[in-house]
Amino acid sequence: MSRRVYSVLAWVVLAVLAVYFLFPIYMAIVNSFKTEGEVYNSVLGLPPTLKFDNYTEAFKKASMLRSGWNTIIVTVTGIVGIVVCSSLAGYKLSRTRSRLSGWIFMLFVASMLIPFQTIMVTLTRMARDLGLQGSPFGLGVVCAGLGVNMAIFLYHGFVKGIPRELDESASMDGCGEWRAFFLIIFPLLVPITFTIIVLNLLWLWNDFLLPVLLLNDYRKYTLVLTINMFFGKYSRDWALILASLILSSIPIVMIFAFFQRWIIQGITEGAVKG
């Protein structure tokens, strides 16, 4: 097979696969601009006029502002909790060379093998007993608990690359351990912190099962839960549903558009080191 044929073949395969990947998104966007009747009569055609009625209706009926705000609370609580707790623990565990430190680190790492599905039933009870069920903030705290092990693992590995002399010179200059951590060490952890934020952002923003189990009042629902409820309620009106799907995906797609390079780097690094 000559190189030229090979190259043409590669383009064809890529193009076909690109159609497969874009097709549902394209169909969803096109039909979200139609009326219910237009979807019914011609699914494949383009909308005759560009109408945003479905979007305004979906925005109101699915209470996008409220559920978007709930999602932000969950995500921010979870990420702040994970970053603060894990950077402290990961740094100290990496610096201390004692048996105790080794054991604690082992415990964290081993727990990465526990699937969420194995603990979901008892975890739900635990959250209820602690009064964390039913609020986005509580959900964020629970998520922080589930996310620290992986983050500690990543911080632990990263800290090894930061020279110990930095800690020592700080303590010689009379800087306390905690101040030294926040003023000197933490700023150096920014690259790995970014990776951790990216990985957890994707998880927390899009999570479904844990929020379903912990949030039982629709006013506390995150975006994904609201869309799930909306889907059940208006399942006959596809135009409206599709508009709500597109609308709720916009924030994460925008984040992706702005931070693509870091996100891609974060995911590759997180996977290779994890």
Binding site: P24, N206, V224, I227, S248, S249, I252
Partner: peptide
């Protein structure tokens, strides 16, 4: 991969 599994 960026989209929620439920939504997509």
């Amino acid at each position: 991969n960026m989209l929620s599994v439920i939504i997509s």
